[in-house]
Amino acid sequence: MPEKLTMANALNRALRDALRADDSVVVFGEDVGPLGGVFRITDGLTAEFGEQRCFDTPLAESGILGMAIGMAMNGMRPVVEMQFDAFAYPAFEQLVSHAAKMRNRTRGRVGVPIVVRVPYAGGIGGVEHHCDSSEAYYAHTPGLHVVAPSDPADAYGLLRAAVESPDPVIFLEPKKLYFSRAEADLSTPVPPIGQAVVRRDGTDATLIAYGPAVPVALEAAEAAAQEGRSLQVVDLRSIVPFDDETVCAAVRSTGRAVVVAEAAGFASVSSEVVARVTERCFHSLHAPIRRVTGFDIPYPPPKLEHVHLPSVDRILDAVDELQWEYA
């Protein structure tokens, strides 16, 4: 049944349904117990499922991740929360050297089916260390899946899929979308991890975005339509595995593309998208692919984040530069 709900509601429902569906699912992290998480994503889970299934840990991210890996080695499916993007860094070694490599190290014998939920990215006026877009670090690491939903229905579906995945999944939750409401039917299956979707059809150029940049791209496409330009919007959803097929088909259909992402552009997921699409679709392109990304600066203080974040205007400016004179 379609209903109006926030991404936070959808994520909470996904965890609840996953805990109900499979006894081996456990949820833990900092403040996820009686408080329900600082963003209330785990609200009510301890009350419903008890201390053994949803619990608070000592305040130590490497400890949380390391314990999750061990529990996964012994038959559990841990879903852990890193309270904020930049607070996940202490767990980096556990992710990169262990979660990501365990299957490989053991010649396929031991998988690590964990989900690492990371409230991430900016746009909420957060103080420093609370707004990083850290996806490139994870996407660069073979062995991790990296996904980022952009609406409540996808948040629900992707999280359920992440919990069922046999591999570690970095689940990036755009903080600024937590409390935006949308119509969603949670009983309708969403495409699997690894598949991108076209969120808006268009014929003149393709905007490629993921996570928090998707609503901005959609807004830009709406604004462009009023100016008579038809922009297609592709939502990657899954950064790893990457859906070359859908993305390339979309770009080939329009011949022009702009990649939109909050993260700093240098050596980023957006660089990878441009490289991949250029390698595969060069002869279909009428113009070099442009990028609208965050600048190569530490995340700004709240009063200045509007300067940094991709905006509708900046996207439309980039679209304008796609060599329309050769159309």
């Binding site: 490497s62 390391g66 314990m67 529990m71 262990h98 014998r109």
Partner: peptide
């Protein structure tokens, strides 16, 4: 790693230091 950790109940040898101690805690907790 050349042996089956599940069958032998021996984790893969750790070359990074101390990281495996947390895995041990996780296995025990599970």
């Amino acid at each position: 790693s050349g042996y089956d950790p599940q069958a032998t109940r021996v984790a893969p040898q750790a070359t990074p230091l101390a990281t495996h101690l947390l895995h041990a805690v996780g296995v025990a907790h599970a």
